[in-house]
Amino acid sequence: MLQSGYINFFEVNKCGLYRLFNETPKALELEETIAKLKDWKEGRNFEATNPWDPKRNRNKTPCFCHEIHHNENTGDFLLVLWKGDSDRHGPLYGITINPDGSTEKAIKQTQTNSKKPMVWGRPSYYWVIPELNIIASIKFENSRCDSAMFQDWVTGCINLRVDLPDHKKTLTEKGFTRIQMPDGDADQYRYSFQFDLSMKSLSTSSAEMTELTKRVTHIIRRETVTIKNVDKRKGFAKFFQRFEVPYISAENQSTRRVELKIEAKPTVEEIKQIITQYASDHEAGTWEDVGFSVDNTTKTVWASKYRLTENISVEDHGEPILTAERLYATILGNRDKYLDPIRKDLELDSIKQAAAHA
Rank of each mutant, 00 (worst) to 15 (best):
K14T: 05
N59T: 12
P320Q: 05
P320C: 09
D196P: 01
Q188T: 13
Y18K: 00
E173G: 13
K214T: 06
I342Q: 07
L79D: 01
D166M: 13
N311V: 05
K337N: 15
W287F: 15
P123H: 06
L339G: 07
K38F: 03
S201A: 15
V230W: 12
H282L: 02
I129D: 02
V230Q: 14
Q109I: 06
R19T: 10
P123M: 05
C15I: 04
K344W: 06
Q3F: 12
V268N: 04
D289P: 04
H70P: 03
T170W: 06
S124P: 08
K55V: 10
L348H: 03
E269A: 12
W52Y: 14
H357I: 13
F240M: 15
R58M: 13
H66W: 06
E310H: 15
A186C: 10
D152S: 00
K214L: 06
F46N: 01
I134H: 01
D340M: 14
A358P: 11
Y126Q: 05
S304Y: 07
T172C: 04
W40D: 09
K55Q: 13
R343F: 02
M209L: 15
C145L: 04
C63V: 01
V128F: 09
V80M: 08
I227R: 10
D196M: 12
C65A: 09
F140A: 02
P165R: 01
T172H: 08
Q111V: 05
N296Y: 14
A354I: 00
E263M: 08
D231P: 02
G5M: 02
A355K: 09
K261T: 14
S249K: 10
K238V: 03
K14S: 05
K299T: 15
I138H: 00
K234H: 11
I107L: 11
T112Y: 02
N22R: 11
E288F: 06
Y6F: 15
Y189I: 02
V245W: 09
E269I: 07
I227G: 05
